[in-house]
Structure formats: C-alpha cells, structure tokens
Computed example of a mutant assay.
Amino acid sequence: MIRYPILSNDATVGVTAPSSGVPVELHHLLHQAREKFQEQNVQVVFGETVWTQKKAKSADAKTRANEFNQMMQNDNVDVIIPPWGGELLIETLEYIDFENIKEKWIVGYSDTSLLLLAITLKTGIATAHGTNFVDLRGKETDPTTAMWKTVLSTEVGSSVVQYSSPFYQKEWKHGNPTPVVFNLTEKTEWKTISCKEQSLKGRLLGGCIDVIRHLAGTPFGNIQSFQQKYIHDEPIIWFFENCELSTTDLRRSLVQMKLAGWFDHCSGVLFGRSEANHSVGDYTVEDVYWDLSEELNVPIIYDIDCGHKPPQVTLINGAFAEVTVENGKGKVTQCFRS
C-alpha cells in the first residue's frame, strides 16, 4: 500500500541539496525564498550543502546523503524542498538510508526526481514532483504552482483536482523576473497523439527522463516489485519531462525502459513541454510519441504542465490519478488511496 505524508499549516521546510547547491553569487535567491516563507509564518531550515557548489555538485556523495538522511529523520523538519535540481544526484543513492525514511513530503523536479522515484519505488512512500525552493521566492505565486500546498495537504482517502495552466514560460529570463518569478507568455495547450479527447487512469510514476532512466536495472528501479508490493498490479500512468535529450536519445531511453519492463501494466504516458526534443534528421518528437503509442497501445498526452518550462502541476508518485484532455485543456484528479 502507498503511504502519504500530510502537510500541516505550521510545517517547517527543510532545504538540502542532494544534487546541486547554490553558488555564492546566487545566494540571494535562497534568502528571498526564505523571506517569502517567513511572511507566511513558515520556518525554513537550511542545510550546509545548499550554500556550496563545486565540480557539478554541492558536496561529495556521502556528505549530501548524510545531510538528507539527517533531515529525513529530524522530527522538527516536516517537508524537504531542495533549492533546485542539478546533475549528479545518482551518486548519493547508495548512501541514502531507505530503511529509516520517515513519512514526510519531498518536493522537486529535474535531478531531484531521481531521488523521488527511487524513494517511492523502494518504500511505497508517496513523493511530490513539483516546484523547486528558489521558484517560490516571488511576490506572488502563479495559481498552477501554488497548488503544491493544497496537493500536499490532501488527506489519505481524499482527492485533489488540478487544471492545466492558462500560460507557460517559453524561456528563462533570470535577469527579468516577474512578480511570480516566471515569464508566462505562451498559451498552454495539452495535446494528444490521437488529436481527440483523451482520458486515462492509473497510478502515477515518473520524473525527468534524462536521469530516472538510469534507475533501470538497478536496485532502485525495480518496477515489478513495486507493482506487486505496493499497488497490487494496478496500471501505471508514466509522466516524463525531457531536459536535454534529442529525439533519438529520448527514443533509446524509452525502448530501454520498455525492455526493462517499466511499461508493463501501463495505461498511458504523459510528456511535459520541453526545450529539448531536437529532431535528428526528420525524426521528430511527435514521431517518438507515435512509435511509443503504437508499441504499447496506450494513449499519449504531451505538452503538459511538467518540467523545465513552468509552471507545473504537482504530480504525486504513487497516487491514483485520472487525467483528461479536452479542447487543449487538461485536468488531473489525484486520489490519495492506499
């Protein structure tokens, strides 16, 4: 059975960097985000790793893992939100104390999603694919991102509904932040391979495909064991976002996952918007989606609010979901059932 943490109104946020820390010249982003939380009477506890960055990581693997383990076991920390993602979180997995992980929310995306998926697969504890800590520093929070609190406050057995955003950010403009941090200029449109209305149901699992693909074939990516032990072979809805992969690399990754059995009992696949997906020759990302849909015989929904083109809905690894798309608009209903 899946176990769900719950976020209380007086929760203390722990910020640790299991992947990349924040370089000195950007420390003001951390201070701004902490001030925003404090305005809402939410306390923030920083780990040492958030303040450092060298050789593509905040610290060595054992130091990062130990700080994460300590925050997980600290009863005074209620939810963990890394500052952002990075590159080399995978180095920490062998040092994570999965046996003593407590039921508290971990929130993030990009490289953080590797840790989220591994925890849910190994322990059956739900994790939250959503916002980074530094993205919550704005004077306001856009309605799509702001739903993270509502989602994480959902009680076991209850449901929560989210809708696709009105507009999304085409490109990062760090020197020109808006009151909500993001530059939301482009009209959002969720799409389906069938070009028709679509609805699918199943347990959510996923993350940044660039990194979670590396769990296949390891002790941290045993999908078959997770299906049998925690969800009793219920169908899975996979959600992916692509940070840097070309269309052929994306295709290779999906084929590897299929061969590893990750798509057994799959009821559909969701793909987030992406700045990557660069075509190789005339092989486009739509071709990738078509190939996968035909092989798995499942619906494909793409350009959803997930990943590096914010904002994004908060998707819970392990939750039962119904996802519908009609006239370019999306709706995600998540039920926190065991």
Rank of each mutant, 00 (worst) to 15 (best):
G272P: 04
L7S: 03
S253E: 02
Y302K: 00
V323K: 07
T120L: 08
S159R: 01
V134Y: 01
K201T: 04
P235T: 07
S8G: 12
C306S: 13
F68G: 03
L89M: 13
F220K: 04
V45K: 14
T145G: 00
P166M: 09
K55D: 15
E140M: 06
S159D: 13
F263D: 02
N100F: 07
W262C: 06
L215D: 03
C195E: 15
R203V: 12
K187M: 03
T218I: 11
M147C: 02
K36L: 04
R3D: 02
S274G: 08
E91H: 08
L204T: 01
T154I: 07
T218R: 01
P18Q: 10
H31L: 13
Q312V: 03
L116V: 03
L296A: 06
A59I: 13
V107T: 05
Q53W: 08
L93W: 05
A61L: 10
F320H: 07
G330V: 00
V107P: 00
T154Y: 03
T247M: 02
K173Y: 08
S159E: 15
G261I: 08
Q228R: 15
S58A: 15
M72N: 11
G328H: 09
V24E: 00
F320T: 01
V181A: 00
G217K: 03
N100W: 05
A11S: 13
D291W: 09
D78E: 10
T12W: 06
A276F: 05
D287F: 04
T248S: 09
T144I: 13
E186I: 03
S8W: 03
T192I: 11
L315Y: 13
T145M: 03
I300K: 00
L292N: 06
N74H: 11
L250V: 10
A276S: 13
F226H: 08
R203Y: 08
L7V: 12
D111F: 06
T120E: 05
K55E: 14
N277R: 12
K196A: 10
N132K: 09
K187R: 14
S293G: 15
H174R: 10
L292M: 14
V298C: 12
